[in-house]
Design a protein around this nucleic acid. Structure first.
Length: 720
DNA sequence: AAGCAATAG
DNA sequence: GGTTCTATTGCTT
């Protein structure tokens, strides 16, 4: 797109003027429309949205860690609950969220792996997101195992390249069709979307060893709903003419994503139970109950209309750790537990690299009257001298200082002179700032880098096209309302640096190291995104040593050895293939092999332990174990074969306009800070705390990525 | 900015 | 339903 400037505001007016009547005069919508939907001849066009949903995610991760588990019924246990299980176990009647006791009854041979520690799941989850992002930056996470992706641009670009009379087809299932009978020519974009989905699923399988489902549709709601049509490990596409079918098939309003328990109850109070009920219900009455915004959203959802954009998630905005238990009633226990939780949280925070500005303690208390009283929390700012310790070196120091802080918060909620009964404690860091932010406040570090630069960075906003479909009078089958949200995003291959970040705390380092040079699937390319190829540096990189994703090797060379080391350390490399980051040397604490003949004993042990529950379960059924020789996916192996060299699609690179020499002369401290900052650049913003008060519509705030107030150091590196 | 409710996996 | 262990967003103060 032509607009590659930092200031988008002015441009908006122009966009507006160029719009057709049927498109709402929302700047973002305008951008969206002109970005891709203005097919001079055919007018606006639908978005193509993918939804990915990994099959029994935790179980898959454990099976990768220990392939022997693939053949046995496997359940992932958190406390006394089976949170998920593999398909072998499902065949025997085990279901999600079944109690361990029930599960064992159904399936006595069930092998259990403790899953309270989410570390491995979280890591794999981010690898998945990163991998998707390497093809197209518009990826939004939903929990650990689901991702939305807006592939409209990719589709448009493929469409432009496909010869007039090319034989189109759908990959996978097509909802309510026999697939063969569908005329792909009628829905070329969705058809192409189904091919992209298939390719991405294959990439995920080959590179990460994970299988899952995908849904292909014109908005997030529909993509999510349709993705579960054929399970596991299959995909299905929803055509616009079948929208009312899929909505109508939902067994209750509760099944509509976005309608939770409370909303369902309120709807039921209005006499609404089915999706159809809501579709036909008076909007005015709905507004009376829910207010205009929610009412409209609800009604639209019932109709299969969802104009919400795929908002790139970026790095998490908070990190928390929690533990639940049957009973805790002494201050001593509480403070010990807080210490324990903080130790691991601080560790995670340290790896993240950002500095938390606020701390929150939350508890859940047991009460006779209320059975489970919901959570209560207290939060406070984190004195910066403590925050620094987290980021810098001394984790234990930080913990020691944070514990009293947490205990103080605890006493704000609980009068320890009286009896109390807690069932959960959670510790949370939020308001995460990049270190660059702090520095920028202080003094101008910026001047060190005033290094004029070639136009290394380009910014393109590929607005997300909202459902620019509309018209087609059938309200049930098409998304007709929309308001677009322009998201700044670049989909340009080369050194693309997004200089805006809403506030300092955007993407984290290892969470997203985009540019994981993805081995280009021949087909699945940044085709859509790429313009310029042949990045000399790419070849360099491979030869060099594997560097963290967005570290430019040229710059890397100039760094002090100490910093280089840090960058190569597992914390930074995280998801990168590396020899040092020997991803799991499995912590073998294993008692015996899962399928050994003593299994039944193990099972009995488990039962006994669960009966008591409170004492830490000793029986640990199986603790992950991966025989040293067993290599499967994951880590090196998988990644090793990865991306020799190729275009980086959405990569936020190490700033190209930083002079490496200047950089190398900075104090190590400052270098670190900058590296941390750079590692954290996010492709698009999500503008969290930087919301403009009121005025803007809900949705606009989200995506409208004018991160003009970015307080990260990037702004100091703009080409002059 | 704080605290909580709702939603989600 | 909640149970687990997270995480996000929006409402209210």
């Amino acid at each position: 797109m032509a607009n590659s400037e930092d200031e988008m505001e002015e441009d908006d007016t122009e966009w507006k003027n160029s719009l057709v009547d049927s498109v709402p005069l929302i700047p973002a919508a305008a951008a969206a429309a002109s970005a891709l939907s203005l097919n001079k001849t055919s007018g606006p066009v639908h978005r193509v949205i993918l939804h990915f949903d990994l099959d029994c995610f935790y179980a898959q991760v454990e099976m990768i860690r220990n392939p022997a588990l693939r053949e046995v019924p496997l359940g992932i246990q958190q406390k006394y609950i089976i949170v998920t299980c593999n398909y072998v176990a499902r065949d025997q009647g085990v279901t999600k969220l079944m109690s361990v006791t029930d599960a064992k009854e159904k399936c006595p041979q069930l092998v259990l792996v403790k899953g309270e520690d989410l570390t491995h799941y979280r890591e794999m989850s981010y690898k998945m997101t990163e991998l998707l992002m390497s093809y197209c930056p518009l990826v939004e996470r939903l929990g650990f195992d689901e991702n939305f992706m807006d592939v409209t641009k990719m589709v448009e670009s493929r469409l432009a390249q496909t010869p007039e009379s090319h034989k189109l087809s759908f990959k996978g299932h097509v909802y309510n069709h026999s697939s063969a009978d569908v005329e792909a020519r009628d829905h070329p974009r969705l058809a192409l979307g189904s091919h992209i989905a298939a390719e991405l699923r294959e990439a995920v399988r080959s590179k990460l060893g994970l299988t899952g489902c995908a849904g292909i549709a014109t908005n997030k709601l529909l993509a999510k709903l349709v993705s579960g049509s054929f399970k596991p490990n299959q995909q299905t596409t929803l055509l616009p003419e079948n929208v009312s079918d899929i909505m109508g098939c939902l067994s209750s309003l509760r099944k509509v994503p976005g309608v939770g328990h409370q909303t369902a109850k309120r709807l039921q109070a209005l006499g609404l139970t089915s999706v159809k009920d809501l579709q036909l219900f008076s909007l005015n009455d709905l507004v009376r109950e829910f207010g205009a915004a929610s009412a409209e959203r609800l009604k639209n959802l019932a109709l299969g209309i969802d104009d919400s954009p795929v908002t790139p998630t970026g790095a998490p905005q908070s990190l928390s750790d929690e533990d639940s238990f049957k009973k805790m009633s002494s201050t001593k226990e509480v403070s010990e537990k807080i210490h324990e939780l903080l130790s691991s949280l601080v560790e995670r925070m340290h790896k993240d690299g950002r500095q938390p500005q606020t701390f929150r303690l939350t508890i859940r208390r047991y009460s006779a009257t209320n059975k489970w009283f919901s959570r209560e929390s207290r939060q406070c700012p984190i004195p910066s001298h403590i925050g620094q310790k987290i980021t810098s070196s001394s984790s234990e120091d930080a913990v020691v200082q944070l514990v009293p802080l947490a205990v103080k918060l605890f006493h704000k909620m609980v009068d320890s002179r009286a009896a109390f009964h807690l069932t959960l404690i959670n510790v949370c860091f939020s308001n995460l700032q990049t270190r660059g932010a702090a520095a920028s406040g202080k003094g101008s570090i910026a001047s060190f880098f005033a290094h004029s630069t070639s136009p290394r960075k380009t910014q393109v906003h590929s607005s997300q096209s909202q459902d620019a479909s509309s018209q087609s009078g059938d309200s049930l089958c098409t998304d007709q309302q929309f308001s677009a949200h322009s998201v700044m995003t670049q989909c340009t291959s080369q050194k693309t640096v997004t200089t805006k970040s809403p506030r300092g705390s955007e993407a984290a380092p290892h969470w997203f190291k985009r540019k994981e040079r993805v081995v280009e699937e021949p087909l699945l390319q940044r085709e859509s995104c790429s313009t310029a190829k042949s990045d000399p540096e790419e070849t360099n990189i491979t030869g060099t040593h594997r560097l963290p994703a967005n570290v430019d090797p040229d710059v890397f060379r100039f760094l002090p050895e100490e910093i280089q080391k840090e960058l190569l350390s597992p914390a930074y490399r995280n998801s990168l293939p590396s020899s040092s980051a020997v991803v799991n040397v499995p912590n073998i604490t294993q008692k015996k092999s899962p399928q050994s003949s003593t299994d039944s004993q193990n099972v009995r042990d488990t039962k006994e332990a669960l009966d008591k529950l409170d004492p830490p379960n000793r029986l640990t059924t199986v603790n992950q174990q991966r025989p040293a020789g067993t290599s499967d996916f994951q880590g090196e192996n998988v990644m090793e074969e990865q991306r020799p060299s190729l275009p980086r699609s959405s990569d936020c690179e190490f700033p190209g306009n930083v002079d490496p020499k200047v950089f190398s002369e900075l104090p190590p401290d400052v270098q670190r800070e900058l590296m941390s900052e750079w590692k954290q650049q996010k492709p698009v913003l999500k503008t969290p705390s930087s919301r403009k008060p009121a005025a803007r519509s809900l949705k606009d705030r989200k995506a409208a990525g004018k991160g003009s107030q970015a307080n990260n150091l990037f702004k100091y590196f703009k080409p002059s």
